[in-house]
Design a protein around this nucleic acid. Structure first.
Lengths: 320, 320
DNA sequence: ACGATTTACGACAATCGTAACGATC
DNA sequence: GATCGTTACGATTGTCGTAAATCGT
């Protein structure tokens, strides 16, 4: 048995039981992958994969059990590498944040600016995607942290930490009639065509739910994945926008006006997610605390090696 | 990086930083061990061991961190092997119980008899030792379970499950004057020379504490590690014995008489310990349930992957 | 001076990639 | 017929053990 064999198993599973794709993802030849897997199966005397003729279609029960261990092993190998870097290179390395446009554009810049100043040696990379992609990147080890509002807690093996609450605002072109209706009501909002986030983004599901709870069927004329696109179309007069309040910048958005909608929609919580059982480089703790000051090192550590049950025990983040 | 290197690290640590002993324990040459460790140190760019000249004396901080991961990896490798055996060989394999004489002689036989009948293919081995040795055997992977009354919970990485309560009895030669003093008191017991368990065995510490709490200084003329030796010396008239009640067998011990001492000493609890994070063969669950019926599979699983905090949540065992 | 670790070197084994083959959809 | 997995084989690499050198107690 050797590490390569375990890596191959994990890759084949991750690539939906496609050995060729697994070989590509590990920059090696496909026959090598097949052979090593067979060698391992011979050694432990159990078939790991279900084969239909020559095609791999799934896992045996034994394979599933072994896969969980193999996963943890390759994760630990990665951890060992990180410890090595931490002690040899100190504050150098690569740091990949998987996040959504909204977070990247509006909530992260301040923390990232301070971070890059403090750690000039750390190569910072932002990878954008929808919440599902983000969770997959994190789970696959392609990112060190994931930051988003939704669907980070559904993935097994990930731990989501609440970072901050945020509220929504309605944006309109200047001089829009909605600006007169104070206080703002759901009914008033629903009377106009709406531009807002795409499904599965930035709490869109909560927006839908709130309208539904009021018995309203809003006319969503356009949905987009990022606030800037939404703002652009609102400026064009396509409709009013519902966006994260933090996305409105009075200095820049001179052709838009904003109406606070905190009282209409429940606040959403942005989460920062980590893989369970990963070794965190020192600068990662610093970054997390810069981004969400209540998440200090010991809090993160506690959440990280708990089996997820303690998520509810985490301190509630401040409201903003 | 490869598995052998990680095995070597674990062995060197376990052998108190003696590379030669580590090599022996893994049936390989010592230069190979040194070389592989150096290669790994080069690869991750960090010294793992502190060397005084050419002698290995300890670990660096990085080494300690890496060691914990290496340990888990080699454990998981073992787990994978076990899964393989479980599915390929079914009810075959080796099963090592590390335990004390008292447990082996008096509490285990019934469960073991049923077990061996049900699993004729399983090679059962009993390894005796004092509680510390037992815990070490288990931690080192030389045993699958450990069963003892004391000091199994002190070891990190082990999970101790309460199995049953047991009480003590005083044994005397036939016709001993102590048999007249009913009910039995601590003072009456302390009036005679005593033969009982050795330090660190079978709740000896509790016996000492109980005497001390009564302000008594008993005359312990002999201490032994097993009940049979104690009984032999009591038969010879060396003194009265304090033993586990289950150690008295009215049919065999015809030259001895017994007085229940359950009201004098708090009951002790026998624990069954497992390594955290180990994969348990199916027959192991069966054995545990045979030995302690309240420890069914799901209870054991829960205790096994919790971080130890849930020990207190386990159901209290029945009294016997 | 002895025990323990590192260095050097040679034999062996394992892995990897290319190429060809067989099966499945 | 295109994709996917297995088999075959040669080149390379890496690992292991013996022997010798070096260091520290």
């Amino acid at each position: 048995m050797n590490l390569q064999q375990l890596r191959f198993i994990c890759a084949v599973v991750r690539q939906n039981f496609n050995a060729s794709a697994a070989a590509d993802s590990l920059y090696t030849s496909q026959p090598g992958v097949s052979k090593q897997i067979q060698l391992l199966e011979d050694e432990i005397n159990v078939a790991l994969f279900v084969r239909k003729g020559k095609r791999i279609t799934g896992m045996t029960p034994a394979g599933e059990q072994i896969f969980t261990f193999a996963q943890r092993i390759v994760g630990d190998i990665e951890n060992i590498r990180k410890v090595g870097q931490e002690f040899s290179q100190g504050d150098c390395g690569e740091f990949v944040i998987a996040t959504t446009h909204t977070q990247a554009r509006y909530s992260l810049p301040r923390a990232i600016k301070t971070f890059t100043e403090r750690y000039p040696g750390v190569q910072l990379r932002l990878r954008q995607g929808n919440p599902t992609q983000i969770a997959e990147m994190l789970a696959a080890g392609e990112a060190d942290v994931a930051i988003a509002t939704e669907s980070l807690n559904s993935y097994a093996g990930l731990v989501a930490l609440p970072c901050y609450q945020w509220n929504r605002a309605v944006i309109t072109p200047t001089g829009h009639p909605l600006l007169q209706s104070q206080p703002l009501t759901m009914e008033a909002v629903a009377a106009y065509p709406i531009v807002t986030y795409d499904q599965a983004f930035a709490g869109r599901s909560l927006i839908d739910k709130t309208f539904a709870d009021h018995g309203l069927s809003p006319n969503i004329v356009l949905s987009a994945i990022d606030s800037d696109v939404i703002k652009a179309y609102v400026e064009l007069g396509l409709g009013i926008g519902i966006v994260a309040k933090m996305a409105y910048d009075p200095a820049r958005d001179i052709r838009l006006e904003v109406i606070d909608a905190s009282h209409l929609f429940e606040p959403s919580i942005a989460y920062l997610a980590l893989r369970q059982g990963t070794y965190l480089r020192g600068y990662l703790y610093t970054f997390i605390e810069l981004y969400a000051p209540h998440l200090d090192r010991s809090t993160v550590d506690k959440a990280l090696d708990s089996t997820g049950a303690s998520r509810a025990l985490l301190p509630l983040p401040f409201s903003s």
